[in-house]
Design a protein around this nucleic acid. Structure first.
Length: 465
RNA sequence: GCUCCCAUCGUCUAGUGGCCUAGGACGUCGCCCUCUCACGGCGAAAACCGGGGUUCGAGUCCCCGUGGGAGCGCCA
């Protein structure tokens, strides 16, 4: 049987790290097995679901490159189907009307809690035939009372839950709308889902869903419950800690591939391998190698990975992402080196694309001034002779090329009997405005001959003034 | 409270009874490279939650404890 997985977010917020990883695992598993990956929007909570959230989830998945083969399906468009199934279950006694009021149920739970019992519906409407005046009933699933449910989890192995721990859950509200645990089952059946990969906070729902599934005469899918992701402080992710939208990682200058790689390694491993291309991930991912315990999100490691990709991905590909940031950060790069030229020499010094833009401005714009400390130390009457000598020597160069420039700087330093740093650093400050840049040769090459010489002049003027 | 899940360096993890004097990666620290910043190279510190079993032998299997997490909704 071919594999079908699904990602089923509820559109009550953006796509965050945890959701993205669940989506990634589902996507990988489907790809790995040549199966289908279905996107289903679980929007039955009409109060909290929003179109903005749906869009944010779609955008997030697109940026990550997690393409779905089918969907998105919307549960709110399938209400007829749910009603149909509920009707069948009512007819054959698998479900029944419950006329208990909120107050009654609350009181019942209170009593149970007082007796240190798990609060559960006690089934008092199971046998009721007559409606109750003035009460719109909910519909409950008649859960088996004996035996147990065994989940053969692909990650955790066998999990057993006694049916006596379960109660008759509500499958339709009094307004007739179906509830989560029910629609999931109908959808998973109808959509032919073979593998449900989801957060381990759903483990407790699984036996209920399996019971409903079996009542419907369906073979349950395989389940794989992945552990949750904790914030860097080891606490549960919340808006306060890092449960931010994946799109925020784009804004902060991360490559989708880096985030994907980080996410896949958070809870999964393939021996000691740390860096994976998309293809390798697909080829090597498997469920039994997924960790059982929760993992903390480590921003430092993500930063490191991002730089690995900046350094090793084809420059043309990185350039596309970099262009997005230049645009966003108001850097016009039309009058300077191409991004493809820029990337190889900057990647080793930047952990994010945002950093790369910030540290590359002087290739395209005149520095707005000199860094105060840098100028104080490097643009002085002491260094002026070196700058002047550099200017002459550089102006006389045949080819404006890295090695030649480096050689020129070296010659000047030898002639003036100065250390390389005493010459290169003033030059660096003169042309970039600061003390940090790629090697002096690369820097001048990308800035360009005319601009470089003009900037040296300007620095000389600055020293005189 | 009840049920379920989980437990190796600060963090992500390797480890499926002997190969473990517990390996790798991020981070940290030191050294090297060096025109700055980085990259890179080399090295160091750093962990099997505790207690019982099982076994010739346990990080690995079992039990108990402890700690963390999840669920117990007319939310998903």
């Amino acid at each position: 049987m071919s594999v079908t997985t699904r990602f089923a977010p509820s559109p009550t917020g953006y796509l965050h790290i945890g959701g993205a990883r669940t989506a990634l695992f589902s996507w990988l598993y489907a790809r790995r097995h040549g199966g289908r990956f279905v996107l289903r929007i679980e929007d039955t909570d009409r109060e909290r679901s929003t179109p903005e959230s749906i869009q944010a989830i779609l955008d997030g998945m697109q940026w990550l490159g997690l393409a779905y083969d089918e969907g998105p399906y919307y549960q709110t468009r399938r209400f007829d189907r749910y009603r149909e199934v509920i009707g069948q279950m009512l007819d054959n006694g698998q479900a029944y009307h419950c006329y208990c009021t909120h107050e009654e149920l609350e009181e019942m739970r209170e009593q149970q809690r007082a007796q240190k019992l798990k609060p559960r519906y006690d089934g008092r409407c199971r046998q009721r035939r007559e409606p109750r005046e003035g009460v719109e009933p909910v519909i409950r699933f008649r859960n088996p009372q004996d035996g147990e449910v065994v989940i053969d989890d692909l990650i955790r192995g066998s999990i057993r839950i006694s049916n006596s721990e379960l109660d008759d859950l509500i499958i339709a509200r009094s307004d007739g709308t179906p509830t989560y645990n029910f629609v999931v089952v109908v959808d998973d059946c109808d959509m032919g889902i073979t593998h449900v990969i989801r957060g381990d906070d759903h483990i407790n729902n699984t036996p209920r869903q399996i019971n409903i599934m079996q009542a419907l005469g369906h073979e349950p899918p395989r389940y794989a419950h992945v552990p949750m992701i904790l914030g860097a402080d080891g606490k549960r992710l919340s808006k306060r800690h890092g449960a931010v939208s994946v799109l925020q990682y784009r804004e902060e200058g991360f490559l989708p591939q880096a985030l994907l790689n980080y996410l896949v390694r958070l809870g999964w491993s393939h021996g000691d391998q740390e860096v994976f291309s998309r293809e390798e991930m697909i080829e090597k991912f498997d469920l039994p190698a997924v960790q059982k315990s929760a993992a903390s999100f480590d921003p430092e490691k993500l930063l490191w990975l991002n730089q690995q990709f900046l350094m090793n991905m084809p420059a043309a590909e990185v350039a596309e992402h970099l262009a997005w940031h230049c645009e966003r950060m108001d850097l016009d790069t039309s009058n300077g080196p191409s991004l493809e030229q820029l990337i190889p020499i900057q990647a080793g010094r930047c952990r994010t694309l945002v950093e790369m833009v910030e540290r590359s401005r002087y290739f395209y714009q005149e520095p707005e001034g000199y860094d105060e400390q840098a100028a104080g130390k490097n643009l002085t009457t002491e260094t002026a002779p070196a700058l002047a000598a550099l200017k002459d020597r550089l102006a006389a160069l045949d080819a404006w090329q890295g090695e030649a420039i480096h050689a020129a700087v070296k010659q000047v330093s030898e002639e003036l009997e100065l250390k390389m740093g005493k010459v290169a650093q003033p030059l660096r400050v003169a042309v970039t405005g600061g003390t940090v840049s790629p090697s002096i040769g690369d820097t001048l090459v990308l800035i360009g001959r005319q601009r470089s010489l003009a900037r040296i002049d300007r620095a000389l003027d600055y020293i005189q003034a």
